[in-house]
């Protein structure tokens, strides 16, 4: 393993911001830590970088304990949330900073900087002032700067957080391609699930300084570990349920579940696609309270006669009017019994 955290703990005052976290990142792997703000994900990066001392546990890089190793000797790169480019230096000098610290020759620096700027899509920008860069350009310069000293591990703190949506979606694809080509090992943190799923080989969901779930994007998306993860991923249809022999008793009535589902008192998730709308007398009777246009589909918000509110995904043309009465049936393939 390139990076291993063993019961790593950071306490501020009495509060554990990082609570006995075990995490490892293999060489060439891209791991994305996903969590709401305050879940301890930035602290995790700072601890690995050596900017935040641990209160307990240890951090190993290539098998070596890093306690007592200062930040500048760890050989890891960190791209800060708001980039933190040096304002009094131009683009080239920012990118060359790490190379200068390694005492590379001027010629080496110039070649490297040229190549890196080319790679991040800013060829010939070396002489430009940092203040004149757009948000996307700053992000690229910050990336080139972090990559320049060839860190064994590159860490990204909300790498695309401050950019607008279309730019974000384009850059996330570019980043994944670039890291794949360079074979960079990456540990990124973000609160944006779309970003995490698009970037990562493996997603780690954090809650209150602990790891709530770890797995491939597909695994996490398909089988959230618990109610917290499900709700954090944006799922609203989560209810308590009692599961027996292929059926679950819920506030919405008795729902079909896969035969293999775990038995007993559980939490149940119904994905919006599994909420099918039918003409009114059939199924669970609901009132349409709102409709949200989602591009490819419409999210229909429903108030059932009984039980908590429901969200359904519905094709554009079939979406019922707000205020109308509809019936709801459930699709067992879109129902997940959580841990």
């Amino acid at each position: 393993m390139l990076l291993s955290l063993e019961v790593a703990t950071v306490r501020f005052g009495g509060r554990a911001v990082l609570d006995a976290v075990d995490l490892s990142v293999a060489e060439h792997e891209i791991v994305c830590v996903l969590g709401p703000s305050g879940s301890g994900k930035s602290t995790l990066l700072r601890a690995v970088a050596g900017l935040q001392p641990l209160s307990g546990g240890r951090i190993l890089l290539s098998g070596r304990d890093q306690s007592g190793v200062p930040a500048h000797k760890r050989g890891v790169g960190l791209m800060f949330q708001d980039h933190q480019l040096f304002p009094q230096r131009d683009v080239g000098a920012n990118v060359a900073f790490g190379l200068r610290m390694q005492e590379a020759s001027k010629a080496e620096q110039a070649t490297e900087v040229g190549e890196l700027l080319e790679m991040v899509g800013l060829p010939g920008a070396a002489r430009r002032a940092v203040a004149g860069l757009s948000g996307g350009e700053q992000q690229r310069v910050a990336l080139a700067r972090a990559l320049a000293p060839r860190p064994r591990l590159l860490m990204l703190d909300e790498p695309l957080g401050q950019l607008d949506r279309s730019l974000r979606e384009r850059l996330v694809v570019e980043l994944r391609e670039l890291f794949g080509r360079l074979g960079t090992t990456v540990l990124a943190v973000t609160h944006d699930q779309g970003e995490a799923f698009a970037l990562a080989d493996r997603v780690v969901v954090m809650r209150d300084g602990r790891i709530a779930q770890s797995g491939t994007p597909l695994e996490v998306w398909q089988r959230p570990a618990d109610e917290f993860v499900a709700r954090f991923l944006g799922f609203e249809n989560v209810v308590p349920a009692t599961v027996t022999d292929g059926a679950a008793v819920t506030p919405w009535g008795k729902l079909p579940v896969p035969e293999t589902a775990p038995q007993g008192t559980r939490t149940l998730l119904v994905r919006p696609a599994g909420v099918r709308l039918v003409p009114a007398p059939e199924g669970l009777r609901c009132t349409v309270t709102a409709r949200t246009f989602k591009g490819t589909h419409v999210a229909v918000h429903l108030r059932p006669e009984d039980g908590p509110r429901l969200e359904a995904a519905c094709a554009l043309r079939e979406a019922p009017e707000t205020g109308s009465e509809v019936g709801v049936e459930f699709d067992p393939t879109e129902i997940v019994v959580l841990g």
Binding site: A49, G50, L51, P70, A71, H72, K73, R74, G75, V76, G77, L78, F80, D82, Q84, F86, F97, G98, M101, Q102, R145, A146, P149
Partner: peptide, 20 residues
Amino acid sequence: RLREAAAVLGASPWRVWWEV
């Protein structure tokens, strides 16, 4: 965090003061 950025890029504390 500018100082931290320099440290992560390999600058010793003295160097951070000098450079940042």
